[in-house]
């Protein structure tokens, strides 16, 4: 692992630990987290149930029952897992030469689908068209998935359109594209949510019928492209 990347290992109850690389949203730290996650998927630590990467942390859930009998006297399963994790961090992290995946997500930014675009435009003193132009002008890193099945936390959006989340969550329709702070994301399912809605995609971010049920994974890149309402309906028709 990166020699200068500091971390601490904290417990999350009696069957999970979190490797905390600092409480921040930072691309190079997140890259390390995702690399570590891929390594663990490929070569898990003994007793690991699953690993869950987040912005700047990775949580390992472990099976106390299977580990307990093999732990040296005087050690807890947690201490043993912590030791194993530290060893793993020292030795086994191979940097990835995988090509980064870029997923194109078509979005219709029409008013009908963009309930908050006018209020953002008014607050930022720009036109809704400029918001669309800014939102589609860069590719976003998927830092993590969470909140809902297939919900990708992506960033960072251009400073010009940084806007806080709403104080109270509202009902959001599946496919809605939102922004909040530096983040952008797509609601895979109908859900209460507090992000400011700027458009809607006709593609499914989450499809339970698929072997890989989410459209994107942590570490992917996403580029939004603007489509018309006709195109939206066309794609929607093809996908359903």
């Amino acid at each position: 692992m990166h020699p200068h990347l500091s971390y601490k290992i904290i417990s999350l109850g009696d069957a999970a630990l979190t490797i905390d690389f600092g409480n921040l949203i930072n691309e190079s730290i997140n890259k390390k987290v995702i690399t570590l996650f891929h390594n663990l998927q490929h070569k898990p630590i003994q007793g690991m149930v699953e690993a869950v990467p987040a912005y700047s942390s990775l949580t390992i859930y472990y099976d106390v029952i299977s580990l307990y009998k093999n732990i040296p006297d005087g050690k807890t399963v947690f201490e043993w897992m912590k030791d194993q994790t530290e060893k793993y961090l020292k030795e086994k992290i191979e940097t990835e030469n995988k090509e980064e995946v870029t997923v194109i997500i078509p979005v219709c930014y029409d008013k009908e689908f963009a309930s908050d675009i006018d209020s953002i435009a008014a607050k930022k003193n720009i036109s809704p068209e400029e918001i669309v132009q800014i939102h589609t002008s860069r590719s976003y890193r998927v830092y993590m998935l969470g909140f809902l099945p297939g919900f990708a936390y992506m960033g960072e959006v251009d400073d010009i359109i940084i806007i806080p989340r709403k104080p109270t969550p509202q009902n959001v329709i599946a496919g809605s594209v939102g922004i909040a702070g530096q983040q952008t994301g797509v609601y895979p399912l109908n859900s209460p949510g507090g992000w400011q809605i700027v458009g809607r995609t006709p593609v499914k971010m989450f499809d339970k019928e698929k072997k890989e049920p989410t459209l994107v994974k942590a570490g992917d890149h996403v580029r939004f492209i603007s489509i018309s309402k006709d195109e939206f309906e066309n794609i929607k028709g093809r996908n359903s």
Binding site: L12, A16, L24, A54, Y55, S57, T59
Partner: peptide
């Protein structure tokens, strides 16, 4: 005054 960035949580957190 710190704000937390999201991390994994658990049953019982």
């Amino acid at each position: 005054k710190d704000e937390l960035v999201s991390t994994a949580v658990s049953f019982g957190t």
